[in-house]
Each structure stands twice: as structure tokens, then as C-alpha cells.
Amino acid sequence: MRKAKTQAHVFSISKHHVQSISMAIVAFIVMTFLIVTMLTTAGNHSRFSSSALHDWTAQMQSEWFIHILGNENRYYLDGLEDSSTPNLGTAVLELATNMNVEDPRTFLGRELPGFSAFDDTIAVAGEGTDFTTMSMESAPPPEVQQEQGNTTAGNDGEDSEQRETTAAVDDEDPLIHISHAHNRESFYPEIDEDEPFHPETNIVKVGEYLADNFRDYGLPVEVSADDIQHMLNERDLPYHQSYEVAREVVVENMEENDELEFFFDLHRDSVSAEHTTATINEETYARTFFVVGEDHPDYEKNLAMAEEIHERLEDEWPGLSRGVIIRGGSGTNGIFNQDLSPNSMLIEFGGVDNTFEELYRSADAMAEVLQEYIYEEIEEE
């Protein structure tokens, strides 16, 4: 009788040890999987940094962090409609796979071609702005790129070395630099073409008009007239490297002009007029959109500036700004040369269906708001 009890006791202990070892093995596998996922999904520029931790934790439900704080201070839980603890399994899934069960885009983005274009984050939504009306880039068709590569783009036969240094510079040391990484983006109402890309009638005209406004406000400015598309074609580079080539131009100008502090890269959107046109005080304006690249450590400074300019525009011209979006990750540049200065912005002016008249009205409004902001920043220095 005693022998049977002893055997039962031994068997019970062995079963308990087996369960403990099994749980430890499972926990080890899960933790290893999570660590490997974190190390392999972070970019080289952000590994083992605060920005990497921010990106990883951003994948998890924010309620988890509120509940953690709520364990120490119950007031944090008062603002929650549902004070129940979030599902641990869901949190582990989101952290391990970068998939959010509440956001279908995270499931489809890796499977459907082009779906990653909707991965942008809306930092500030202007009127009518949602994930169906996001800013969209469109490259020229291959045949158009080849055709344009054989032109001199309005430089009257100058060689490529001369073209790469063309910039309208004021006599006084410029404070503002205006560039156009996609310099041939154009507008259907202003050209007789099948595609909205033109070597002369394009977004550069808006940049020149904006610069004239700055000069009227007493702010020295330079406008890059470099034909980035021609430079791409000469080097046989793809369109998505426009920002890398434009960066060379901006850096060169920064080295030549130490006083440069504010940098504006002007573009036009590819969406239709219903999303890019606003009627304000019985006049039509080309709506603006601010794009902030998040793939560099200090992007929040650029974001703060964009949000501030958006708010000021909305105070004076309600509906003019479509908002501020954050763009990064695979499939896009994700920096847009904004790492060169905290006072750098990418501004979309209108879309393919807007006219220069509408664009210039928007440039007038933008210049008024920006000059106030710039003078305030100068006074603080």
C-alpha cells in the first residue's frame, strides 16, 4: 500500500516538472521570436534608440500603457469608456507581427500591390481628409521620361554641369531655400499634354511666385531651378531617386550660403480637383497638404512646424489646408531631405486639375503665414 502511494507521489512530481519545463520552453521561444522580430524590422538608423522603442510600442494598443499607469494611479482609468484589461494575446500578436487587428491595412498592405500607399499616418486631418483622400505621388510614364531626358528643360543648351548649379539668388544672403524635387510636375489646365509633366510649365513657377512674395515681405530667398528630371535621365537613375539627387543640390546651396535656415520643397498632388480645390470668400484656391518624413530621428521637429503652419492657415483661410500626414517605411523615401533642417517642409500645392490662378492665391496665403512664422523664429534667436 505504501509502495503504491510512493509511486503516485513520484509520478505527480515528475508531471509537475514536465509542465514547468514545457512552459519555460514555450516562453523562451516566444521571447526569442519577439526579440528577433524587433532586431530585424528596425531600420539601421534607429536600432537600439528611443525612436526604435517608439516604433515598436506604437504597434501595441495604447490602452495597455494606460492600464499599466492605472495600476499606480487610478485616475488614468477614469477616462476610459471600457476599463477592462485589453487582451494579452492581441497585444502579443500586434507586437510580434506588426499587424493591428483594428486596422485592416496592416493585413493587406503586404499582399496587394500599391496598397502600401495608404500606410501614411494622418497627423492632422483637414476638411475632407481621410485614408481615401491621401496625398498621392505619380511618376512620369517611361516613354515620357525618355522623351524629356532628351530636352534641355528650358536651359537654352547649357551643359549638364551648368544646369546643376542654376539658382536664383538674392543679393543679400538668402534665408529661405525653395526647391522642387519633382520639378516637372505640372497641371492639366495649363498644358496641352496627355500627362501632367512638363519641362517648363510646372511647379517651379509656383516656387518662383512664392519667392516673390517672400521678397515683398523683406525676406531674402533663393529658388532652385535645377532640372532634377533631366539629371536623373542623364545618370540613368529611376524616378524614386529624385530626392537623393535634389539633396545634392540643397546641400551644395547650404555650403555656399551659411545663412539658410528655412527649406521648402514644393510639389503638386495627383488626386483630382474635388479634393484639391477649395472655395474661400467666393474665390477658388488650390488646397495645400504637408508631408512629413518619419525615417529620421528628429522628424518630430519638422512635424511640429508643419502642424503649426496648418493651424495658422486654417485660422485665416478655413479649408485651405488638407492637413498634415506622416510618411515613412518601405516604398517611399521617408526622409524627403527634412533631416537637413528642423525648419524643412514638403508642401503639396494643389493637384493635376488646378490652375496657376488658384495656385498663386494659395501661394499668397502661404507666404503671409510663413513670413509671420519666420520673423517670430528670427526674433526668438
Rank of each mutant, 00 (worst) to 15 (best):
A8W: 12
S14H: 07
H17R: 10
V18T: 15
V26K: 05
F28V: 03
V30T: 11
F33K: 14
N44S: 08
R47M: 08
F48G: 00
D55K: 15
A58P: 06
A58R: 15
S62M: 13
F65Y: 14
L77N: 00
S84A: 14
T85D: 08
L95K: 00
L95Y: 14
P104I: 00
F107Y: 12
G109C: 04
G114M: 11
T121A: 05
A125S: 13
E127W: 03
M134L: 15
S138K: 15
V144R: 12
Q145A: 14
G149S: 11
T151L: 15
A153G: 14
E158T: 05
D159I: 07
D159M: 00
E161V: 09
R163G: 11
A168D: 14
L175A: 06
L175Q: 03
S179N: 13
H180K: 08
E185L: 13
D192F: 03
F197I: 05
G207D: 07
Y209M: 05
D216W: 08
L219D: 01
V221Y: 11
V223R: 06
H230V: 08
M231C: 11
L232H: 11
D236F: 01
L237E: 09
Q241E: 14
Q241S: 06
S242V: 14
V249D: 10
E252F: 10
D258I: 11
F263R: 02
F264M: 02
A273S: 05
E283D: 01
F290P: 00
D295S: 11
H310E: 08
H310G: 06
H310A: 05
W317H: 09
W317K: 07
G323H: 09
G328L: 00
P342N: 04
F349K: 11
E357A: 12
Q371I: 09
